[in-house]
Amino acid sequence: MTGPKLEQRIEPEEELALPNVLTTRLDLALNWFRKSSVWYLLFATACCGIELMQTGGPRTDLDRFGAVFRSSPRQSDLLIVAGTITYKMADRVRLIYNQMPQPKYVIAMGSCANCGGLFTPSYSVVNGVDKIIPVDFYLPGCPPRPEALNEALIKVQEKIQGEPWFKKIKVAR
């Protein structure tokens, strides 16, 4: 999945065509590094957290994509909000998000994080984590299957791969 895309963009120039040397654009290479080590925060608040664990487990194995779980937001690139967020928890979610270093990505996993899900009519549940923090990807399901979470991670990787890093420099020239 990662290989062909990168190869397409490679434009070997005559003087640099040495053995074992590939040339590519710097942002493509950097994005490739970044997307291959998306570390996600183990932020399991409810039922979806169990499927998040199973996704990290042997069958689906998010580790294949370079995604390993971290326990601290300060070491994480990706916040997977796995479960219901209550009003009591809301401030803490914002704090955790603010503790993560830039650039950061958020997956709202499951119906509760998307919109409140089953608990939308409840007096204590925030109807969607996007009321508190910005969300990149909404993953439906109650709870989503590990395959679905896997797909969401791939979407995050695609987003990372497509991000222009040096846009500003180009404009300046």
Partner: peptide, 26 residues
Amino acid sequence: VGYLHRGMEKLAESMPYASTMPYTDR
């Protein structure tokens, strides 16, 4: 505690008996 208090007991009062079944999963 209370960070995951989802108000299930109140929800159960607002729906028929059979409809509460999926909530008891959670």
